Simulated scan of single mutants.
Amino acid sequence: MSRFSELIKQDKPVLVDFFAEWCGPCKAMAPVLKAVKDSLGDSVSILKIDVDKNQELAAQLNVRGVPTLILYKSGTQVWRQSGVVQKTYLLQIIKGSN
Rank of each mutant, 00 (worst) to 15 (best):
G65A: 10
G65N: 10
D52M: 12
V44K: 02
S45V: 15
K73G: 06
R80D: 07
Q77L: 10
L57R: 13
K73S: 05
W79Y: 11
V85D: 04
S74P: 12
T68W: 00
S43C: 00
A59E: 14
L57E: 06
K48D: 14
R64C: 09
K87V: 05
W79K: 06
T76I: 15
S43I: 08
I70R: 07
R80A: 13
V78I: 11
I46D: 02
L71Y: 00
A59Q: 12
I46H: 08
K73D: 00
S82T: 13
E56G: 09
S74W: 11
L61Q: 04
N54R: 11
V44W: 03
S43W: 04
G65Y: 11
V84R: 08
S74Q: 15
Q81V: 06
P67N: 03
K87P: 04
V84A: 05
I49H: 04
T68Y: 01
Q81F: 06
G83D: 00
G41Y: 06
L61K: 07
Q55F: 14
V66I: 13
T68M: 03
G75M: 01
V44R: 01
S43F: 01
K53P: 12
S74V: 14
A58Y: 06
N62V: 07
V78G: 05
A58K: 02
L69I: 08
T76W: 14
W79L: 04
I49G: 01
L69N: 10
Q55C: 12
T76K: 15
K87N: 03
V66G: 00
T68V: 08
S74E: 15
R64H: 14
Q55Y: 13
L47A: 05
T76Y: 15
P67V: 04
I70A: 10
V63K: 00
K53S: 13
Q81S: 11
V85G: 09
Q81Y: 04
S74Y: 13
R64E: 14
V78C: 08
Q60M: 15
V85N: 08
N54F: 11
N62D: 14
L71M: 05
D52A: 09
P67T: 01
V85L: 09
E56D: 14
S82M: 07
D42Q: 11
R64I: 13
D50K: 06
Q77A: 15
V66Y: 00
I46S: 07
V78S: 09
R64W: 12
T68Q: 01
Q55I: 14
D50N: 11
V78L: 07
V84W: 02
D50I: 04
I46E: 03
T76A: 15
G41M: 05
G83A: 07
V51P: 07
G41R: 10
K53L: 15
Q77P: 13
Q60D: 15
A59G: 10
V63C: 03
L61D: 03
Q77N: 12
V66A: 01
Q77W: 05
D52C: 12
Q86W: 02
N62L: 11
T76S: 15
